[in-house]
Nucleic acid binder design. Sequence first.
DNA 1: TAGATTGTTAATCGATTAACAATC
DNA 2: TAGATTGTTAATCGATTAACAATC
Lengths: 218, 218
Amino acid sequence: MKQDKISEAVVRRLPTYLQVLYEFERREVVTVSSQELGNELGLNPAQIRKDLAYFGDFGRKGVGYDVLNLIGHIRQILKLNQKINVALVGTGNLGHALCNYNKYSKDNMKIVAVFDENVEKIGKKINHLTVQPMSELKQTVIEQQIRIGIITVPDFAAQAVANQIVEAGVEGILNFAPAVLRVPEHVRVHYADFTKELLSLAFYLESERRNTDGSALD
Amino acid sequence: MKQDKISEAVVRRLPTYLQVLYEFERREVVTVSSQELGNELGLNPAQIRKDLAYFGDFGRKGVGYDVLNLIGHIRQILKLNQKINVALVGTGNLGHALCNYNKYSKDNMKIVAVFDENVEKIGKKINHLTVQPMSELKQTVIEQQIRIGIITVPDFAAQAVANQIVEAGVEGILNFAPAVLRVPEHVRVHYADFTKELLSLAFYLESERRNTDGSALD
DNA sequence: TAGATTGTTAATCGATTAACAATC
DNA sequence: TAGATTGTTAATCGATTAACAATC
């Protein structure tokens, strides 16, 4: 195949492919079939083959995919071979958690600057990073070639922070605040809104707590 | 409409509807049309009407939806009118962040117990909750009627923790670890995996950083 | 009544899956 | 060669959108 416009659904599956491929790598598996990948992820093998074929012919007929090779390709597709600098705004518990996550990442994404509106937080250290005031955002983004901004402020502050991040010239935003952001077209926003996942999970709970009168279905 | 089986896509949109409805409520708006909701959320009005119609006839022709009334209905659908107790496993920064989030929630979901495998963490206080050992999980789940478990442990530990949560009798899991969990059919797993969102965001960045030789497109 | 907006059916669009020739 | 598995086309399935009668 190669080219066509790639759908979002496809792109969103790539990181999970990468994730299980890392696992296969760790187990020193050399070759993997779409069947095996599908098993691991609960996906249809045809879908995996089709997804990968959008980007190139990575497999070998009758054999499967070379694990290391495929990892390389997906990393390339996701641009994880180049360093991607990230700024984080909002140094609450969630912000702290994400800064720490930094350390475990084998990807080239790295939080290189941290900001907060709260004067009391400014100057504090989080790991080796010093919390900066928002007024320094734009200059830091330029100097450090920051391309992605993470928003971990309360929801009422999210839009204002997004505006400043956009104005600073960032290309993508990962928003943890439960709020829909309005940004110009050239900036991409992804949402990491666990409240949505948590509330929708409740829908699938059994309607009534099982009670003790014995009348309930199983 | 009313009934049919409801697709996941529909259910996942309900919390966002709720979110903007809360916003309208705050602004003391009485009535809202699918048009206005769509504007706010970047969704097609027909989709919103259709989504809501799965659950009942909540609107009034020529008028729209009563904000308070619709909030009530969606809360009911998502089971947010009953208290839903939640247990959290893994008291790292992320776990802490989620425990705090607790306070802001106007929903009836509440983290009522916190667990960690690490002996050093046990007995520590997080807000008013005391970190318990995993060995107490099952009994606590039963005693406190806990229905949802949140996993915020490192990815390598996620499956083992999931097994224990399932064994304890929980109905749903929200997993923050970047790992695919295997659980029995009657347990529902939602993923709150921001790494997926972060890595897929990179795909949409411009291929090359703009350079300084002036040859790049704008 | 005239204008607005729902609920729903039909049309469209897109994504997933099945099937299979190509080939390692 | 025989068995396995890809890449891709065609078939299916499902979700989104348009359109409109019903009606507030």
